[in-house]
């Protein structure tokens, strides 16, 4: 069966699980964006394990 656009993108990023609806999957993330009010906390979380990717 063919894939939807979203399924094509998920297929290219899935690192755990399979594409069965309702089950847990893990995705590799290419890009993150944060918002003014909540981004600071997210960045503080990041600091000790920063990736250079």
């Amino acid at each position: 069966m063919g894939l939807t656009i979203a399924q094509k993108i998920i297929k290219n990023h899935i690192v755990e699980g399979d594409m069965t609806p309702g089950t847990e999957i893990a995705l590799k993330i290419d890009q993150t964006l944060t918002q003014d009010a909540t981004g600071t906390m997210a960045t503080l979380n990041l600091k000790p394990s920063a990736s250079t990717e």
Binding site: T4, V15, P21, I25, L27, S51
Partner: peptide
Amino acid sequence: MLAMGAGGLDVAVAMGGGAYYITMPKMYK
């Protein structure tokens, strides 16, 4: 690109190169 909203901790993990966990969604058109 698929863009999804996430909590700060999940974003921090993704920034650090870790995976983001979600429930595989259904597809609507």
